[in-house]
Nucleic acid binder design. Sequence first.
DNA 1: TTGAAAGCGCTAACAA
DNA 2: TTGTTAGCGCTTTCAA
Lengths: 327, 327
Amino acid sequence: MTINEIAKRANVSRTTVSRVINGSGYVRDELKKRVLQVIEETGYIPSENAKSLRTKKTNIIGVILPKISTETSSRLMNGIDQVLAPKGYQILLTITNQEPAKEIDFLHLLKGRNVDGIILLATHIDEPLREEIKKLKIPFVMVGQEMAGTAGVVLDDFQATYDLVKLFIERGHKEIGFIGVTEEDRAVGYLRKLGYLKALKDNGLEIKHHWIQEGNFDAASGFHATENMADEGELPSAIIAVTDRLAIGAMQYAKGQGLSIPNQLAIAGMGASEISTYIEPQLTTVDFSQVDAGVEAAGILLEQLSGQKTDTVTVKNNYRILVRESI
Amino acid sequence: MTINEIAKRANVSRTTVSRVINGSGYVRDELKKRVLQVIEETGYIPSENAKSLRTKKTNIIGVILPKISTETSSRLMNGIDQVLAPKGYQILLTITNQEPAKEIDFLHLLKGRNVDGIILLATHIDEPLREEIKKLKIPFVMVGQEMAGTAGVVLDDFQATYDLVKLFIERGHKEIGFIGVTEEDRAVGYLRKLGYLKALKDNGLEIKHHWIQEGNFDAASGFHATENMADEGELPSAIIAVTDRLAIGAMQYAKGQGLSIPNQLAIAGMGASEISTYIEPQLTTVDFSQVDAGVEAAGILLEQLSGQKTDTVTVKNNYRILVRESI
DNA sequence: TTGAAAGCGCTAACAA
DNA sequence: TTGTTAGCGCTTTCAA
């Protein structure tokens, strides 16, 4: 069923049908009714595809995610969809599964699909990727990493960690341990560690080597990191972990050793995962509000879509510390 | 940059360029090189859109979800993408936010976008929706609900709940409570309740009215449901909740009352949420393996795509009970 | 082995 | 107020 078929059946030109569908131009009421009638009868649905070819607008936004089943990703998607759907945009979703090479592949793929814009949730960023983004020439917003000359939304990982450490210090802690992740992850690994180190330094606190451990992203590695801390010397009085799961691993270790939380060991995580509210004691954590980040990213994209030249916007997404029982 | 432009620069016809891109038909090596060269230089990316218009194939699969940031959804997406991405399909994602009317809207929308197939994660299913699906005429797979004449993947909610109750009975429990949700949700609300009732009946156990409570999907309502049970009479010795969060709410109530779990009150949930492993005591739950459901759904779709007429497949997805500390 | 011509389903001048 | 014409970027006969 095509527009031509409808036109024939309604005994009008296809232009008229088009006008009826899009509510553009003048159409006599009688004809309009006739056309609408036929459309109704046939269940005709116009091909967006053909339309796009003509109008150069697909109303599709490409989104590139490293993974789908993480709270970060799904919350972000939530925010993005909240903004985009009401404006009539659909989301073409691609998932890299953490393979950096795929980010470039998907950038090409999405461009080939003539998407109106792209949102990339980046975990790392290297030269080839930078290159590719530069020559993209369609509305683009990067989330999670900063890049000169590109619109973006980043979480203020440095400052959030700094503030968290400061909170511990204000509460009288002088021995503060840190469980991080690989610094290749610029946001979670590098910047959060930097915030930690800076806060200690600014407050004249000692930085003990064995109080700084590294895990990957699961609870088990948080457990081992804490174990290592204990094995290599004294445990500090407080530990900050860069993710809630790592923090929960640390908790598990502490509980296993019969240490009371927060009295003998205070623990905080980051990310405001759902688990953090159900664990006992409830985990103090940092809420980065990924939903808002998604909303902001989509908002910036929309601005670009409407022709505004918003180059190099970088919105630092705000965060708040959720103080709960674990400290 | 279009195929015409490339053709002009390489001094060949656009047909030849097309052949080079698609590796179809005969092309002299020299010409091929010349074309490839130009493509490389210009960074040309063919328009999938124009291609689709001609070939009637978009390589896009539409997915309709009730929500994105739930473990069910994201695990399902995971499974779907795992299968579809390697075959060159992209996912066009639409989210209804639980508004039933939108399911039909999106069905139209996706059809208008000429997607090659559609996967719908359904929570309910009424007559208008059934109608719409019937006249869809493109590969379609329904997940989560059964519908005659339509390929689908359902979780065996009835049997899983039945088995869970049986497990309690085998462990000596005779008083088993139930926290459900609205029966409008056929799978989670209706079928699971049915499994519970049938298991009690089959084993000649008493069904006490106040032992059957209803919550929504959050922990707080699980708490209140349990509270109601206690207020309206004696608490049973065991409680089954149809979601982990409800179960966690029940746990919170029990702990607040100083009841020991599982000795004074045994509790099980369903869904194998991540939280269930971190809560204390660890929650016994049913793992429905949504990832597998996604894999199967995508697999069935792929079969339909390759022309196989797989009408009315309904894969009962397997499940397993994760027995942990809470019972 | 290559190219010319037609056409996928739609919109947008333009003319009537 | 309506229709004719051209063309979006591509693939696919068909003929050369």
